[in-house]
Design a protein around this nucleic acid. Structure first.
Lengths: 181, 181
DNA sequence: TGCCAACCGGAGGCACCCCTCCACTAATCT
DNA sequence: AGATTAGTGGAGGGGTGCCTCCGGTTGGCA
């Protein structure tokens, strides 16, 4: 189930809205959460006033970017649902890794009390937790671990820096082998 | 072996220097790397000019804060050297955890090409790697893991957020159990 | 004690960012 | 085609931070 994002009605307005979303994602990934809003408007080829009309606060921008990512994550969970337990879980985690990797700054800046944050979190759990439970019931995952533990483990490992991708995968592998039953 | 930090000569100058170091550590921990330099000077009870004389660039401040932490880490490694292999390693990692936890912002903002960074890194390896190698030779740690892998694993896990300390320890435990032979 | 080099601190000039406001533009409807 | 109104964009006021510069202060030495 996806989280909705209210988009403007008129065609030109919607174009601007999407352009701002793209520009914001780029800017946040490049410069972190304190990226200049004026710069984001410039990137989107839009006046600063337009940015403020669509996203009255910086938080609103964070949330919009975040919602889009979460929906993508839910889509992938559906795609992998048919595969064997452990494989499906790790395939979804792969997507999760790329999600966390680029969006960490945004995630950290989110207001975790907001209604939107709660429904996004719920969406993500609905997407991933069945994969986890299935692997656990198949005896592939140790019983004393929770899905939340796993998410935080992977999120933490992914947010670090590594010499190369091989090292990152090796480290992830070490940690995940601690997860197996 | 510790990394040196050139301190001013005159008594009042040295007092200001130390005060700035303390204030910077606080400010960076609280507000991240983009904490205002003017605010740091205020916290230290010192003029902005004094800050700039001691630390001409923001990087210089990062480095100075970082050096102090590294030296602390080296001190702990000496303290635990006498204990059994696995225990000594995890005791040192505990210290490493608290080091990474509070200083993450500074660490990420460091210029990793600088001479100072290289010697700090060397200091840290001299401190921790013997503990790791000993545990590995005692057959306590899997052979295909490197000390660098371990540091990045723990650094990553520590930089995340958790529901409570118990969860953090559980997640760390899962990952470290993947490290055992 | 008296000297002076080392050291201090903050005013000021510049740059950038935030956010509001409103005269203008053009998409949509009839 | 013309009316309606949602939507545009940027000028401008207020704020904050960066960094330089220099008149004033003081620790340490003879």
């Amino acid at each position: 189930m996806a989280v909705a994002l209210r988009r403007p009605q008129r065609a030109d307005a919607r174009r601007n809205f999407e352009a701002l979303l793209v520009a914001a994602r780029e800017a946040f990934a490049e410069n972190g959460t304190e990226a200049s809003l004026e710069d984001i408007a410039r990137r989107a080829g839009v006046g600063i006033g337009t940015l403020y009309r669509n996203f009255p606060t910086r938080q609103d921008l964070f949330e919009a970017v975040y919602v889009e990512e979460i929906n993508q994550l839910a889509r992938v969970a559906e795609e992998v649902a048919g595969r064997p337990p452990w494989e499906a879980l790790t395939a979804w985690l792969d997507q999760f890794v790329s999600y966390v990797g680029t969006k960490r700054a945004v995630i950290e800046a989110l207001n975790r009390e907001s209604e939107m944050f709660r429904s996004c979190r719920a969406t993500m759990y609905e997407a991933g937790e069945p994969l986890f439970t299935r692997a656990q019931q198949a005896g592939e995952v140790r019983a004393d671990a929770s899905f939340d533990d796993l998410l935080r483990l992977v999120a933490g490992l992914t947010s670090g820096t590594y010499v190369d991708d091989a090292q990152r995968d090796r480290v992830l592998g070490i940690a995940l082998s601690g997860l197996r039953a």
